[in-house]
Design a protein around this nucleic acid. Structure first.
Lengths: 212, 212
DNA sequence: CCACAACCTGACCAAATGGTCAAGAAGAAA
DNA sequence: TTTCTTCTTGACCATTTGGTCAGGTTGTGG
């Protein structure tokens, strides 16, 4: 108990509280949607008085916006594995693995993103139009290069990407349905591995990806 | 103007108003989520005073429940093509087509379902545990039979179904994102055909479906 | 030790929302 | 026509919710 008991500087307080609030907010927004979430609920989950939330985040929308932006960063970073690859089997395989892992470890974020997009992206429309579109164009170009090099069948890169997003995020967004169909239990390590393997196999064989 | 101008019987009034309200509710629930939707908004979209909604549907939850149940029926009916097929190429291909068509024509319903499941299915959990589970088991058995007959590779039927759901529903649930990435325009007939073809090709080739 | 700035929070408020109700309008049954 | 049931709706209410604020506490720099 001696060490680490007194390092509560102002800066640390701020960082820690903001992180706590953002974590709680992500969960509540994921569970209840923006409209269904209440500041009181988030405050309770964060273990802070409601007025304290408004000290760090002026409005509910500001808090929500920060949550969505953080998620977006996580998603973009997951695509690094895509770029470093020599061919589709490696690149797409690694991307599937990375996104499945995010779905498993970060399901609330995925749900918030899905909810935001389903509601016509009132908060992050500009991100869709700029960053996401650029990212998509870049990845499509990579896939097209693989096709031109004869490393995979001539699949429309756009719809391949949509299928990758849809399939991997399904395990987060519809996790409750999957759990229910699994007898009410969360997927085990083995079941997650089977899911990953199935997705990998169907897609890589579906595009006829060649090993480099 | 002479005919069809006076057949407003009480029964017709009821049917018509309930249908109008349910249509409006589906749209509003899809756009705003359960928590974000307001009875006033639904009333405005239906062109009826709010008190009238409460005459037909006692509470917001009752209205919402009816909307979700209706969607569930549409979804189940789409699976008929699955059962009548002789093999995976025909059955799964037709199922993909049917579900893509629903995503195109009935996107609001898909969104409401997605939202409901993401929020841990507070309203239709019993459906998940009974009807959906039975349906899933039945379809998994069919797929397993195809595998045993050598008509496709030994893919885990469960994850194949999840992939079918995820991919087809993505075009409804994430339609706004897809539109944005399409330059802000809804997919054209040709683009929808390309989407269908891509999904069909990747999945049927991915499971190595043989023509019967 | 002091003055300042950053942090904390119980109490409060205006607005929005789900739901109610009573009185009236309109088709159905006699 | 008369009576009954169904439908319609403006006005209203209790509750909830996002957000405010004044006064207090606590690190921090001088």
């Amino acid at each position: 108990m001696a060490p680490n008991i007194r390092p509560i500087s102002k800066k640390e307080i701020r960082q820690e509280n903001e992180a706590t609030i953002l974590d709680a907010a992500e969960k509540v927004f994921a569970e209840a949607g923006f409209g269904g979430a209440t500041m009181q609920l988030i405050a309770d989950m964060a273990g802070l008085p409601k007025a304290n939330l408004h000290y760090y985040f002026p409005t509910k929308e500001a808090l929500y916006r920060q949550v969505v932006q953080n998620i977006f960063q996580v998603w973009l970073k997951a695509a690094d594995v895509f770029d470093a690859a020599d061919g589709p089997a490696e690149g797409i395989g690694a991307y599937i693995d990375a996104k499945m892992e995010i779905s498993r470890r970060h399901p609330a974020g995925s749900k918030v993103w899905a909810s935001e997009v389903m509601h016509r992206a009132p908060v992050i429309q500009d991100y869709l139009e700029t960053t996401l579109m650029e990212w998509t164009d870049g990845r499509m170009a990579i896939i097209q290069r693989w096709i031109d090099a004869g490393l995979m069948d001539p699949i429309d890169p756009r719809h391949l990407l949509y299928m990758l997003w849809a399939t991997t995020q399904h395990y987060a967004d519809f996790g409750h349905q999957i759990e229910t169909l699994n007898g009410g239990a969360a997927l085990s390590d083995k079941q997650w591995a089977a899911a990953k393997a199935s997705v990998n196999r169907i897609i890589l064989q579906g595009i006829n990806a060649k090993e480099v």
